[in-house]
């Protein structure tokens, strides 16, 4: 990956959102995007959380606006997600949190503003978005497993055709990832033979097999029956523990409180409040946050 563009200088100051505990870590000098070592899911390099995410931003969003027709969904979002950080985005329906997530891997095109993934500006017109997406895992509310393929083949498909891994390697990694989500024994089942929770865990394994630098969870448990939610959340917890950088849109307050490094509360297309979970949950500053948490609780 090439050296970051000249925009590096100003982009740091333009992260007013970054006022929480991660703020210090984010204030780098212009050359701050160091050590682009690909994150290895298998493991060795687990950043130490107490180190306050020492360094680099994986995702940086500046002045992001998004409209559908004449309805503006995102009204200027600034946000930085650092390596190893788990950011949980809360907010009422229609607040724009899913749209924000989908802008990050450009499933939705930003109307204006900039988004960087590591040192690539993904909102740039010349960006090869498929290259970026290889490293940005996404988990959908409706799982979106490929129904014509078995669980194992679901996990192998992109490895083979996007990462060009040999079949044997892809298969080995697929089985490892299925093991990781506790579904190795379901490797040869078709999605229609799996429960919703199992399907979602296969979907997580499918994303993990690509060695993502960041995982985006778009209401990953919202379509599940309550008794199936826990298994999925357990998988997500263990991912967080392993140091995966995650952006999680969810309604699971408990999960947010336990797992998040930072909680962001969105409403009406803007970030209303953000901070450490205990701050946001115990001492919400804005009335809207209070109102929302009150309703939820």
């Amino acid at each position: 990956m090439a050296h970051s563009p000249s925009a590096t200088e100003d982009r740091i100051e333009n992260t007013p959102a970054n006022k929480g505990k991660a703020a210090g870590g984010a204030s780098l000098d212009g050359d701050g995007v160091v050590a682009c070592t690909p994150h290895d899911a298998e493991g060795a390099q687990v950043p130490d959380k107490s180190d306050a995410f020492a360094s680099d931003a994986v995702i940086r969003i500046e002045g992001l606006r998004k409209s559908f027709g004449d309805q503006e969904i995102l009204k200027g979002i600034d946000l930085t997600v650092n390596r190893g950080e788990v950011v949980v985005i809360l907010g009422p329906s229609g607040s724009g949190k899913s749209t924000l997530l989908r802008c990050v891997n450009r499933l939705e095109e930003a109307t204006s503003g900039h988004i960087w993934f590591e040192d690539t500006e993904i909102t740039g017109p010349a960006t090869d978005i498929t290259k970026v997406r290889e490293h940005v895992g996404m988990v959908f509310q409706n799982f979106n497993l490929f129904p014509h393929l078995t669980a194992k083949k679901n996990v192998m498909l992109a490895q083979e055709h996007v990462l060009k891994r040999p079949k044997a390697q892809a298969e080995r990694i697929a089985l490892e990832q299925l093991e990781r989500v506790g579904l190795r024994d379901r490797a040869d089942y078709k999605p229609s033979q799996l429960s919703g929770g199992q399907q979602q865990r296969v979907a997580i394994a499918r994303a993990l097999a690509m060695d993502p630098h960041v995982m985006l969870f778009d209401e990953a448990t919202s379509a599940l029956d309550p008794e199936l939610v826990r298994d999925v959340l357990d998988v997500m917890r263990s991912l967080a523990r392993d140091g995966m950088t995650m952006m999680v849109v969810t309604h699971e307050m408990r999960f947010a409180r336990d797992v998040a490094d930072r909680v962001i509360f969105m409403d009406g297309g803007v970030i209303v409040e953000q901070g450490a979970p205990e701050d946001v949950f115990e001492r919400p500053q804005s009335d809207r946050t209070k109102d929302f948490l009150g309703h939820i609780a």
Partner: peptide
């Protein structure tokens, strides 16, 4: 369903793949 294309895209597949 549209989600199938989105899932494939999110895994880094191009349109043809």
């Amino acid at each position: 369903p549209k989600g199938q294309m989105e899932a494939a895209s999110s895994l880094g597949m191009n349109k043809i793949q």
